[in-house]
Nucleic acid binder design. Sequence first.
DNA 1: CACAATTAGTTGATGCGTCATCTATTCACG
DNA 2: CGTGAATAGATGACGCATCAACTAATTGTG
Lengths: 162, 162
Amino acid sequence: MERPSVRRLREEIQQTKPFHDRAHAAGIALVRTADEGRRTFESLVTPHGVSIEQYNVLRILRGAGEKGLPTLEIAARLLEKNPGITRLIDKLEAKELVRRARCETDRRQVFCTITAAGAAIVNELDEPSRRQNQQFFRGLTAAQIDTLLDLLDRVRYPDEKP
Amino acid sequence: MERPSVRRLREEIQQTKPFHDRAHAAGIALVRTADEGRRTFESLVTPHGVSIEQYNVLRILRGAGEKGLPTLEIAARLLEKNPGITRLIDKLEAKELVRRARCETDRRQVFCTITAAGAAIVNELDEPSRRQNQQFFRGLTAAQIDTLLDLLDRVRYPDEKP
DNA sequence: CACAATTAGTTGATGCGTCATCTATTCACG
DNA sequence: CGTGAATAGATGACGCATCAACTAATTGTG
């Protein structure tokens, strides 16, 4: 854990650091910041009986409405691989937060829909998660958040011009 | 009448977005960017027979030198909880990349030291990981990396002045 | 000195992510 | 049509993280 005092010191000598050191420091900061966010968010959702991953599935399914979504479509939206999704939904189904039904027109597909109980959990978490997110970024102004978002996008899409 | 530039238009749109939407978008971008970094780094180290987590342990132990470090000191530097470390080191020990020895003056402690084979792996990965990291941040200028680092630090330490 | 509290570390159970492999179904094309 | 390729999804095996509970050694205190 980088201490604040260490950070100030680092800032003072920043100018002399080569690019790869800055990139290294940024990589570490990225991982640690994301990890901290994950943990605090986890402590918000687990009291409601779901993990972060399960919550994300529920949120996607709530957005999909009555018709639901095929299993792998959920995986795609979560940037996740197939096997994980199957088991994630196994657990959500066991808790009756999600229902599965084979598609009639293409019997390979399994459509997943959220139940009322599942939707209730996601709805309950809307406000708290919004607040928690704002709390998480409270060290930044709105303009700084925009900058952060822009920089993160540039990292993921390095070959775009704007 | 002046014609609004594209950028100006974008800024106007941004200003209409409430803070929590920006924070939400930034949160998602943070997670996705960190995850992408993790995956690409993983593909770099796994061919050398270690996972990212094992690599991080080895790097810490290389830094600790001959004397090594007690198990929980490694955990602290990795921001990780104890049980994970024990098993991580179990595997490194099984691969003979790390050695464990009970401390004589305080027999509760177990000092871990890196073996020559372990150090060889970390050394081999120094250059590639440096290059990979630079590649990962290639979409940013040095100044932008500094800004990113600063913003991430502000997120984690929101209550400091600068 | 003895006993309670603390510290270092391990173990068991559970959840997630990933790879390789497998089944079932549909498609594509000769 | 019919057979081989592609697609949707499930399962097994393994690695990691975390919680709770445990052992062993040390420290602190009356």
